[in-house]
Design a binder for these strands. Sequence first.
DNA 1: CCATAAATCAATCATTTTCTTTCAAAAACA
DNA 2: TGTTTTTGAAAGAAAATGATTGATTTATGG
Lengths: 250, 250
Amino acid sequence: MLTPERHRIIMQLLKDKNVVKINEIMELTESSESTIRRDLSQLEDQKFLKRIHGGASRLQGKLQEPSMIEKSSKNLQEKRLIAQYAASLVEEGDCIYLDAGSTVIEMIEFLPLKDIVVVTNGLMHLKPLLDKGISTYLIGGLVKQNTNAFIGRGALAGLDLYRFDKCFMGVNGIHPQFGFTTPDQEEAMVKQKAIALSRETYVLADHTKFAEISFAKIADIREAAIITDVVDDETQMQYVNRTTIKVVTS
Amino acid sequence: MLTPERHRIIMQLLKDKNVVKINEIMELTESSESTIRRDLSQLEDQKFLKRIHGGASRLQGKLQEPSMIEKSSKNLQEKRLIAQYAASLVEEGDCIYLDAGSTVIEMIEFLPLKDIVVVTNGLMHLKPLLDKGISTYLIGGLVKQNTNAFIGRGALAGLDLYRFDKCFMGVNGIHPQFGFTTPDQEEAMVKQKAIALSRETYVLADHTKFAEISFAKIADIREAAIITDVVDDETQMQYVNRTTIKVVTS
DNA sequence: CCATAAATCAATCATTTTCTTTCAAAAACA
DNA sequence: TGTTTTTGAAAGAAAATGATTGATTTATGG
């Protein structure tokens, strides 16, 4: 592996995690310890990072990342935790489908850099995915104005070209009887098909989605695992399914 | 293999990958190590890339790649006239295909607001189209990093869902014998298919495109009408076809 | 708190890979 | 044909790499 490529990977890791261990880099780049140490020295000389015992840390102050500042909103924090957990489910070699939607978009920055392929119907997902250097396929179709999602016949046909290991999806309502729902019928069709084409489906949902019912049904509640943050009282319990994963908040 | 062709391949690889190893180029061009090294030296002298140990990396920052940035400012006025004329060909009720590319993108602001449907493989086209309120379909596929065009199997399949009244296309080379050409083979396939699906095809080309030959052939010169700005002397005449339209410049 | 163990570090060296230079053969050109 | 340009191969120089060493730092247990 060429030097600048390693450097790029190191900086990418740092952007994601703030601190990175030498072992991680060694594994990811398949290089020796010495090489990575030299890399870190060089990058430190160029003021791109600060070396610490065991690895390196991002130097803050000069170019503060917005990711740390905008963490104030409670709901956003929740979403990020859910997204982070969801991203951790992605394994090397996976081909995954990322549904359009604000929760799913948060997953991208936590995705592993390794050998994965992403297919999506979310226009907004594209730039962050490409920035990470992930090979990305868009399914095409009619562009829905307000959500920037691809829907319609073209989207369904584009989807049908692929099969997925894992599917990550946002929904608007989760209800034990009425299943997963979303306002737009056309979007529901796309989601439905994505689920059908995936080995496993994960629905990312913060607490606001439970006990809600929207217009168009996507699937029954048992057809996907739910990744959420709150499974508190008995009232809520009835809305989850047996594959629900609770992400520890706080 | 000829020198300029190797150079073009090298630059193409760099556009896609940011870094390229000498071995890769050797294999792809079937040339010796020495030759490739010479190529890299020359290209570095011309400020087209930066040599690194083991290969070359594309230089970013100050001298951005000429493909998208320099192009978009240099012959802008020319391009806008060509684009404006092309847009005037669009009639009410038309379903048109807009190819990815900097010349075609200029068409959008001149498009009539009426009842038209646009299909495109250009990601950059999307926002201006939606801003104008035109109903827009994207064909999907693999996102090519540097041109933001959709290519590959997904793009071809997405294209096949539609039929077009008119197709507007950019190319890199126009030559009486070698036809319309473009550097990327995958993009050429998409363009080829778009032409096949259209009743009429218009190639938008400023004077820099004539007598140029790029790597991948799209179509013979008689398969499309050319919209251009200069048809001056006899030398140039041989490169145009009988359907060439000259746009009056200034 | 200290002492010990474990982990990490910088420095060095041998090995591998890549680079530059040089030269002769091949190809293109006139 | 002779001349120029391009190409490929070879040899020594330079750079990058990986392993090893002993020093330094951090963690752990008493």
